[in-house]
Amino acid sequence: MTELLTQFALLLVGGALVNNILLTRFVGLCPFFGVSGSMKASVGMAAAVVFVMMLASTATWIFWNWLLVPLGVGNFLYIPVFILVIASLVQFVELYLKKTTPALHRSLGIYLPLITTNCAVLATATESVRPGFFKLNIEYTFTFPETIVYTLGVALGFGFALISFAALRERLDVAPVPAFMKGAPISFITAGLLSFGYVGLAGLFGL
């Protein structure tokens, strides 16, 4: 039992901090620069990402293990199948929220379509079923609980990095910056400095 809990804790911390998806792996940068101009939008986006990522990983885990692997077509059909599953799932969720809980739809709804084309969701879903993806030789796939915990970690790490960057950018707007660095260039350099902090965590707990 303790062993299991330790492993889950490691997956959570590993996904959230040590391998932070935004700042140490560059997955999902579009919303990172796109919505971080406003704090409110960042919080909404972070919540929507946690929600969609959990759903997407659950769905793709089921499709991978119950459909693609038994049929033996996983290796060449996973890209179209995963992206279609994620896209249609997001669409359904949006319709469902619109009908049942309009208040939640108003706060999360506008971010949902954006997330379909967010690479972080597809990357996490792909990784959960093919965790050896970064090192292609490992033949090990996550069990279902492991997938859920890992995805939760990645999504929380995404939200944390996004919100902290939004807070930095609010201060950046009033800072005296040389004219040629204004706007996007200084944002990139700030992101670079923030990224130093995360890179410093590499090797924590042997992750």
């Binding site: 579009c30 620069f33 796109g34 101009g37 084309t117 040629f180 996007a184 944002s187 350099i189």
Partner: peptide, 27 residues
């Protein structure tokens, strides 16, 4: 960051056009 700063400076010289709204890749 430095590369896009350089390119936007060049663009401003050549085309007198300010670039760089914050990037957006959204639906």
């Amino acid at each position: 960051g430095f590369i896009i700063a350089a390119i936007s400076a060049i663009n401003r010289r050549l085309y007198s056009r300010t670039t760089h709204p914050v990037p957006a890749c959204t639906i």
